[in-house]
């Protein structure tokens, strides 16, 4: 990555975009596979089995190819241009978050000073994509699904931001790398803990914030128990009802990339990101540090994604009003209290 930085801004940017465009869908595939396989075994099934050999590892690829072959249906009543645009908006928003996710000390698209702010702001754009998908489909189920999605995503944007504020106060920076460095500082509110032996990730001091963010992220991603926008038993497939073929695949990949980026943000803000926590990366050379950092991040993301999949295949879904209840009556007051407490400790110590 040092090389990339050395060849100039525009060339480096082009290279980074190229790498991202190649990596990003690849990131979604293992998550899709994990979902297929884990859900199957939780339900006492085998799941994918034949595609690609013994364990069906090629099932996501095969599904993707299948989507390519299918007809791209556009309903007669649809607002055609908007309808066609919507999936790319969702995918684009999900991919743009990658810019600020640090995979290693140097493996970051751009270490923005407002990194966290950027990530959350840009991921909100997918809400608009979902809303216009539901609106333009010309289908009543899609419309209800799209409106539900909009209501839900707007309601959960707030706890999402409030949860992050606690971390930002504690780290005194919005830069993703800065937050990771702050977590590696072996201290808590200025107090040295355990004699500089272990770093304390923010999941411990900011546990409430972490839980709030996790719940809000589930809602933001429309995962069970908050999957009302696509609630299959009620709205057939919600805002996705009319989509088929490639456009559906784009939505699908966008959804799983969203899972990855949300988990990566969570891992960065609360679990120390690429930092392995029990030893220092700065002692290693650049390539080793970046490689180990990326692996550590993927490991942390895997834990969070597993938890998401596990919850999805255990829980039923809430009702729309209960979801709003949870956001406005519980998560948001809790998030505000969390900010107040964090600020108090920050000022006192």
């Amino acid at each position: 990555m040092i090389v990339v930085l050395a060849i100039g801004f525009w060339a480096g940017l082009a290279l980074k975009i190229g790498i991202m465009a190649a990596i990003v869908p690849v990131v979604a595939l293992p998550i899709i596979f994990a979902e297929l396989k884990l859900s199957a075994h939780m339900q006492h099934r085998i799941g994918p089995y034949f595609a690609g050999g013994r364990y069906g590892w090629a099932q996501p690829l095969a599904d993707g190819l299948k989507f390519f072959q299918k007809e791209d249906l556009v309903p007669d009543a649809a607002d055609k241009m908007v309808y066609k645009l919507a999936p790319y908006l969702v995918l684009g928003a999900a991919m743009a978050v990658f810019v600020v996710i640090p995979f290693g000390p140097d493996l970051i698209g751009r270490d923005l000073d407002l990194g966290v702010f950027y990530a959350l702001a840009i991921s909100s754009i997918s809400t608009i994509g979902v809303l216009i998908a539901g609106w333009s489909s010309g289908n009543k189920y899609s419309l209800i699904g799209g409106l539900r999605a909009a209501a839900q995503l707007i309601a959960y944007e707030l706890p999402l931001f409030l949860a992050v504020v606690g971390v930002v106060i504690q780290a005194q920076t919005m830069s993703m790398i800065g937050i990771i460095d702050a977590q590696a500082e072996y201290q808590l509110f200025g107090l040295e803990i355990a004699g500089n032996a272990i770093a304390i990730p923010y999941v411990f001091p900011q546990f409430i914030g972490f839980v709030i963010f996790y719940i809000a992220a589930l809602a933001e991603l429309s995962r069970t128990p908050f999957d009302m926008p696509i609630a299959e038993s009620e709205l057939v497939m919600g805002y996705l009802t009319e989509y088929s073929g490639f456009r559906f695949a784009v939505f699908f990949i966008g959804e799983y990339i969203g899972i990855f980026t949300m988990s990566a943000i969570m891992a960065t803000l609360w679990l120390g990101g690429y930092d392995p926590l029990f030893f220092d990366l700065s002692g290693l050379n650049d390539i080793a540090a970046n490689a180990i950092g990326a692996l550590v991040l993927f490991g942390k993301v895997a834990i969070l994604v597993f938890l998401m999949i596990w919850m999805r295949w255990t829980f039923p879904r809430f009702r729309e009003d209960q979801l709003q209840d949870l956001a406005w009556r519980i998560l948001i007051p809790l998030g505000l209290a969390n900010i107040a407490v964090t600020a108090f400790f920050k000022v006192v110590f």
């Binding site: 075994h41 939780m42 006492h44 085998i46 596990w310 829980f315 209960q322 949870l326 519980i330």
Partner: peptide, 29 residues
């Protein structure tokens, strides 16, 4: 809304799915 005692019932369900995850699958291919 019954967010009170949120943990026990939900955790029980998750324990059951986790147990099933490691059970031998009875599927006949």
């Amino acid at each position: 809304m019954t967010t009170r005692n949120m943990i026990p019932g939900l955790a029980k369900g998750m324990w059951i799915t986790l147990k099933t995850l490691f059970k031998r699958v009875p599927t006949v291919q």
